[in-house]
Design a protein around this nucleic acid. Structure first.
Lengths: 144, 144
DNA sequence: TCATTTTCATTTGTATGCAAATGAGTATCG
DNA sequence: CGATACTCATTTGCATACAAATGAAAATGA
């Protein structure tokens, strides 16, 4: 008996946790995109709403707060700056830092899309009962 | 009272389901990358192991089986062909189809990395008790 | 103080991930 | 049979996502 072969036979990639997580993310993103109104992506929404929550901050710090790599947050911020939602300025106290701040337009786009974002969360969890939702959130948080 | 403002104040993007799913996926991918031995990504692994499971098939079909867009699966397959893990041939019965098949090297790379892939699943679920793992899988499957 | 380390932002390169459009081949059905 | 619809693979464009390297600025500690 070749144990390697028997393991291979048992293994099904589409029953692994990674596969499910990837699919769940795909579904959530699709729901979000279908509800959001200003062609905002989930990461752009995360960056904007987090920036609103914590106030003016540096680019890398905003990235850490939103679980984005320095390269990723830079791309997101660049696009939000280009669209006029975020303003950048040099930090007078630290020559390295780029201070990010929401523009009035940035605040407005958050207000305009908050309901859709909340609905996206609801719709994503719709297949679960209220009790299951609590449990799911808790378990998901544990493996993060 | 401005209800829009109060909603905004309550909303925290890093407590939303989408944020957790994205982070969970990041963590799993990092674990997988740390264990896998041949610079294979999670999607490349999914494509290879699924191709082994279902046998020779078309590119789009493999994409559907692995939850990948036609563009995404094309990129993955192209890279696996380039590395010699997948072989392509025209389907004599259907002029549109490209029949994909694992090469000997492709079979070998699966055998060499199966243990790592299994370990990646285990490590990802490590923070949960056995009971929680069952529950988590079930809930994750429901929202997929 | 001055060398070491750390942090910040940027750039390059590679790899998903999806929308939209295209062209070629196949299936369906009136 | 022939028009229509569908499927397959491809291409383009845009948006994450991360590794690795770089240069500038700040913090640290001997």
């Amino acid at each position: 008996m070749n144990s390697k072969r028997s393991e291979t036979a048992d293994y099904e990639v589409d029953r692994q946790i990674g596969f499910f997580i990837r699919q769940a993310n795909q579904r959530h993103v699709a729901i979000f995109n279908g509800l959001i109104g200003d062609k905002l992506t989930t990461t752009q929404w995360a960056a904007l709403s987090k920036l609103k929550q914590i106030g003016p901050t540096s680019q890398n710090h905003l990235g850490r707060e939103t679980a984005m790599d320095v390269t990723t947050i830079k791309g997101v911020v660049d696009r939000m700056v280009k669209r006029g939602y975020i303003n950048t300025a040099a930090d007078p106290n630290d020559g390295r830092r780029l201070v990010l701040q929401l523009t009035d337009e940035g605040h407005a786009v958050i207000d305009n899309n908050l309901a859709a974002a909340i609905q996206a969360t609801k719709d994503t969890l719709e297949p679960l009962t209220p009790g299951e939702r609590m449990m799911f959130l808790e378990l998901l948080h544990k493996i993060t």
